[in-house]
Design a binder for these strands. Structure first.
Lengths: 354, 354
DNA sequence: CTGAAAGCGCTTACAG
DNA sequence: CTGAAAGCGCTTACAG
């Protein structure tokens, strides 16, 4: 650890000098505080000469408005909170990126939070939002028991994204059941018979994706051997790796696997590869999310895609509308999905028909 | 788009009812505002009976303190800003995760920003930090021209992370030159001769990584054919893919490639694989960051590792100290690195010596 | 242990 | 077009 040069003289003086206020600027420009405020916010016309004097005073004093004071006065902070499950996961990271970019374009800052699917964290966030430091909250709940949203607690402006839906809040989501059904049907149509799914068990989105997996089988008149619903502890590459490794210790490799996220698929493929199985030659893999890693994975993944930017934009639109009018009716918006076909699925020639 | 049920009756009433203030709670409990404040903040002892009455009033009114008011009064928001280059990249996402988790443990919220390496964004952020909505700023600058930090502008509490260093601010970093030199030396020692590097040209961290690449060659008495310094537009998988594809169109595949990030390595491997080259059989690849994808990549990547959590913790420590004492001397802390050996490097038997 | 006053730095009516 | 007053909701001295 190296101690850097101590620039006490100049730098520090600048640093600790008390920040100038609107009054200071007004005094220097010889006008009232109101006029300075008008110049800054454009809230009322100001004569050119006055404006010039004010601008000069502003620059000389290096004035920066105190946002806490403004927030207190206006009842708005222009800051929103976005709570995602786990930023270290590619999906959350991409969503965070879109939220920050799009919110920034609207002059809104984003306080980012992680919930890890903990219901108490979510409750906490709701109450922080109520504490007015943020004007509203976009929340991606993981468990249905996130009952803070249900319990009739006083709600700040909030938009739910993802699979957990409460009619008392605005909501943006993807049809997880349908998407999963479609991608598993693709596997069935490609001639695969022993098809596994790999994913967590307790989250609502996992429940819906599993439902789609089962529906696809039911539609094809296929039973599902229970061991092919492979449980996974975490929504991550590590989780997929561990779950796949554990599965392979006791079972034959399946014909194909539907992993509930790309990250889990990438981990699972690593485990498969370590055990000597090649994708897609020995086993086909499909997944969900279409994060950038899916495209550059070896092999590139066939996966469920949806417009993440659009999802973010829609949530932001709903939140802004809710902030402006707390009493408007709630909306639930569905964002469409599609399947991107890449190289992780092999067509089995001459499928043995049941 | 489906319009959800309009729960106007109860829900909306709750929503728009004006938030209770400390005075409301005080009135209801029959005490002064000060006493309520004492109960909430533990700032002075309160008799058990009074406390009980206050707690009850607090609960009945669903009181939540107004953080803007508190921030204005205290001169602290307990919110910090963290500005990283691009959240969609795995490295920034992992860092963001650590910052949010560790800051949360200290009772600090994190406003996350992206700079994309734009100097003007960075200037803007500095001034927002001065605007007191956040108590301080952790900034990962990309270009040296980020002169806002240099220009003697009034600085809020700020900690720089990464390669760009200004003695007037606290700083946490990794020895990029040394790390790059070491990992390239590993390639040389493994018997590789035509070693390429792939990375952006204008960022400061790229400059340092390139310097390490050159040093390793110089130490081994090896010249570098200029075309083996492969330029790359973006710090991403896409960037690596495109740069590698463009390179392969005009040149023979190198013996080995040092990619400046794991993400670029993953993109480059995808391009290599598309062109029929296998890693590490035909070409070895090493990179930098050790994000989770590096471990599950095919093949798993040999890469530069460092403790990202520790980097985040150190930056947070420095920032807290700076907030508490703006006049303390600045520090620059170096976080150590190491190489994790995985399967992306092949040892060339019988290297032809120069 | 509790209360009444003052003020953090803005901006919104209200007068001129 | 500009100014003086009041108040957003807290908390910190200052008295009791």
């Amino acid at each position: 650890m190296r101690i850097g040069p101590d620039l006490n003289g100049h730098g520090e003086g600048e640093r600790s000098r008390p920040r100038p206020t609107l009054r200071d600027v007004a005094r220097r420009a010889g006008v009232s505080a109101k006029t300075v405020s008008n110049v800054i916010n454009g809230s009322a016309p100001v004569s050119p000469e006055t404006r010039l004097r004010v601008d000069q005073a502003l620059a000389e004093l290096d004035y920066v408005p105190n946002l806490s004071a403004r927030g207190l006065r206006n009842g708005r902070s222009d800051l929103i909170a976005v709570a995602l499950p786990d930023l270290a996961s590619a999906y959350s990271a991409e969503m965070a990126h879109h939220f920050i970019t799009l919110a920034g374009e609207r002059g809104l800052g984003v306080q980012l939070e992680e919930t890890y699917g903990q219901a108490d964290r979510e409750t906490q966030l709701l109450s922080r939002a109520n504490a007015h430091l943020v004007d509203g909250l976009i929340l991606n709940p993981v468990r249905l028991e996130t009952s803070a949203v249900q319990r009739g607690v006083v709600l700040p402006p909030v938009v739910l994204i993802g699979e957990v839906h409460q009619p008392i809040a605005d909501h943006v989501w993807i049809d997880n059941v349908g998407a999963s059904r479609d991608v598993v049907a693709l596997l069935i149509n490609a001639g695969h018979r022993r098809i596994a799914t790999l994913g967590p068990t307790r989250a609502e989105s996992a429940r819906q994706r599993l439902e789609g997996f089962r529906e696809a089988h039911a539609n094809a008149g296929r039973p599902i051997p229970p061991e092919l619903e492979i449980p996974c502890q975490e929504w991550s590459g590590h989780g997929g790796f561990r779950a796949m490794t554990a599965f392979l210790a006791d079972h034959d490799v399946p014909d194909a696997i539907y992993c509930m996220t790309d990250a889990m698929a990438i981990g699972a493929i690593s485990a498969l590869s370590g055990a000597g199985f090649r994708v897609p030659d020995d086993v086909s893999v499909v997944s969900y999310d279409n994060v950038w890693e899916a495209r550059f994975s070896q092999p590139p993944l066939t996966t469920i895609d949806f417009d993440k930017r659009r999802l973010a934009r829609t949530a932001l639109d709903l939140l802004s509308a809710r902030i402006d009018d707390p009493s408007r009716p709630t909306q639930s918006v569905t964002v469409p999905y599609s399947i991107v076909h890449r190289q992780s699925v092999r067509r089995r020639v001459a499928p043995v028909d049941s």
